[in-house]
Simulated assay, not measured.
Amino acid sequence: MHRPNIKAQRLTALFILGAALFNYPLLALFNRPDWVFGVPILYAYVFTAWLLLIALLALVIEKK
């Protein structure tokens, strides 16, 4: 019996998560004139989500 590649499935799930995080409805929630630690909240959200995706990708790719 052929076992599906779990790493490919996790990478696909991360792609879908990234597409959802950077899609219009979520970006519109953070597009306000507020500031977080001196940074506009939209920029803080985008860079935090980007950092989260990079960390999750590294975890999936490096895990044996």
Rank of each mutant, 00 (worst) to 15 (best):
K63P: 01
P4R: 13
A58R: 13
A13R: 02
L11Y: 01
G38D: 06
V46P: 02
R3I: 15
L11P: 02
V39G: 06
W35C: 12
P25L: 02
L27G: 04
Y43W: 14
V60K: 00
T12E: 07
K64A: 12
A20I: 11
D34A: 15
L26N: 04
L42P: 04
L51Y: 03
A44F: 15
G38Q: 06
N31Q: 12
D34K: 14
L14D: 00
W50R: 07
T48N: 00
L42H: 03
A58D: 11
N5H: 09
A19V: 03
L42M: 09
E62Q: 11
I61M: 13
Y43V: 15
N23F: 04
V46M: 08
K7L: 02
L26W: 08
A20K: 03
A58F: 10
L51V: 08
L11R: 00
N5W: 03
P4W: 06
A19S: 09
Y45K: 12
T48K: 00
A13K: 03
Y43P: 08
G38T: 12
Y24N: 14
L14T: 03
N5V: 00
G38P: 07
V46S: 01
P25A: 01
T12V: 03
Q9A: 07
A49L: 02
L26C: 02
H2D: 13
L11K: 00
A20T: 12
I61Y: 12
L57C: 13
G18Y: 03
A49Q: 03
L17M: 11
V36Y: 13
A28E: 07
A44H: 07
N5L: 05
P4E: 15
K7Q: 03
